[in-house]
Design a protein around this nucleic acid. Sequence first.
DNA 1: AACCGTCACAACCGCATGCGA
DNA 2: CTCGCATGCGGTTGTGACGGT
Length: 305
Amino acid sequence: MVRTPSCDKSGTRKGTWTPEEDRKLIAYVTRYGSWNWRQLPRFAGLARCGKSCRLRWMNYLRPNVKRGNFTQQEDECIIRMHKKLGNKWSAIAAELPGRTDNEIKNHWHTTLKKWSQQNAITNEEARTSKSKDKVPNKGVTVTLPANSSLMSDNSSSSPVSSTCSEFSSITSDNSTAASMENLVFEDDDFGFLDSYNESFWTELNLDDISFDAPCEMDLGDTNVSFESTSCSNSNTLDSLHGSTSESIVVDNDFGGFLDAYTKAAVDNFWTQPYVADMSHVPSELLVPSMAESEYFTPIYDDLWG
DNA sequence: AACCGTCACAACCGCATGCGA
DNA sequence: CTCGCATGCGGTTGTGACGGT
């Protein structure tokens, strides 16, 4: 699942990002911001193109990126939005806080596309049979299969057919087509899953997932959790290089993201604005070899090492 | 145990778009 | 208006994991 690192002719690295590269990118972006992606790798000491840095940051390293399996609700939202918007992955991603367009796109192509197609066939068959019976058909129903990642081993008793009518089907009726953004999940909203599968919550770590609006700030309840259910590697950053067994859940405020690292960091380091006035950046930092210097290394060794 | 096909997903590539000079 | 640059977006590829034989 991991690409073999390689270099192109100009010496720019390609392929899988290493933990060390991630450290450098996080260190730079959290402190100075992404003021120019093309120039950033040079200043951050990364032998990567700006595009690659941006992609890595946007899809995996930035705060609020939610990892782990897609929930039933997310799956249904994706299917519904795709039906409505087509391959507008960024627009669909906007409806799913914490999910990236790339992740949604991959999930669609590997899983949901098939379901959707199968479902379309099923609906067509149902429509045909119903029309024979002269029964009105209201809207298009999308039912996720019981053997999905969420429905690992149960079938008829799946949440889809149980008490969560809000998500039990997806119709073309606009009145029920609320976006995920507008959905408020109370504890009870997932109550229907309680009787479903004991391993469900531990596998997905949904108890820490927040659907707060992106702009919502709640510093009093900052919730940052980096969880690993099976990986023995305690290095948080390294766990990013694991697969889907980890879920990284960060509430939607950047301060919270930074707070997660302050324990081991130099106290006043993180209190400085992460978007710095570059005129005050020590000149020695503004050279390609910056990251090879000792300037950052001790701090981030403490943070992640 | 070895092989093979499929799956999942990280990452790359090329084009589109936005914006300032 | 045009050009060039930076960024965003969607399609596609490459590779390891995994399950079946």
